[in-house]
Design a protein around this nucleic acid. Structure first.
Lengths: 142, 142
DNA sequence: TTGGATGTAACAGAGACTGTTACAGGGATT
DNA sequence: AATCCCTGTAACAGTCTCTGTTACATCCAA
């Protein structure tokens, strides 16, 4: 599979909403966001749907419809975005159950589960250190 | 995609080799390893090939052929295994170039690259803390 | 020389994600 | 109330990666 770009798309969307908000633009349509990300509007709506369910963005229907941030971009961390888009964990266990008659086959899964849990915790901690506002700042210097 | 199980398979293989070695079994064939992991021998040979190229295991040809650890299991970290199997990074950037006419589209990639780099560094640091011998110990208590 | 195991190519199948089209639903604005 | 634009979501094709499998050439101790 191609690497998972869900977190990238969602972060891009939020940064763009944050910038628009700062520039006085109240809402953006999925078409407008899609133009920046350079993809189809439905892809953006799927991502925005995830973010809406997580309470990170709000939608307005009817005429003058569109999307806006539901919270201060300084307070939205990439960890929340990661959880919102439900990306797959970095490592998977065996696809099919190992041989239970082998001592390694019996115990390897919980052992690896422990390690993978620690890795994921480190990853989440790092994601929690960066906010959408941070990303936007970094983005605008370049 | 189903989660990436390469690291899991490779670690399982190495732990099994470590246990066999400790029990006085000099070498294991790919068939024997495959029986523990419960998969096809070719899958195991592919993994062992990665590990051989990384210098973690040795192969013996001819009669009495098979695989053995090339180094002390206490000294082989999961980070080395991770690099050996060349698993994909947890996050990918945009599949198609974002719109360069948008300020966010222009700068988002390097900005995200920085974040993702920090995440991967944290992940690697955690993997470096665990050895094959650690995994085997954890495996055998269960 | 022999025989068992490795090394690798080739291919089918599964699964996930992206991109796309199509269409029902919602609600300001008029 | 009618209109109209945009959302929300289903459905589907195409792509890509990984796994599992078969097949076969290669290697080397005995």
């Amino acid at each position: 599979m191609a690497a998972n770009s869900r977190l990238t798309i969602a972060t891009h969307v939020l940064a763009w909403l944050a910038l628009a908000q700062r520039q006085g633009q109240e809402v953006l349509t999925s078409e407008q966001v899609a133009a920046s990300v350079n993809t189809n509007a439905v892809v953006i709506r799927r991502s925005l749907g995830d973010l809406r369910r997580a309470g990170l963005v709000e939608v307005r229907h009817g005429a003058g419809a569109g999307w806006s941030l539901a919270r201060d971009p300084e307070g939205i961390t990439l960890l929340e975005v990661y959880d919102a888009v439900d990306a797959q964990p970095p490592f998977g266990l065996h696809r099919s159950e190992p041989n239970a008659e082998c001592p390694v086959g019996r115990g390897i899964r919980p052992a690896l589960g422990g390690v993978y849990g620690r890795v994921e915790r480190a990853m989440r901690q790092e994601l929690a250190h960066t906010s959408i506002a941070d990303v936007l700042r970094e983005t605008l210097v370049n």
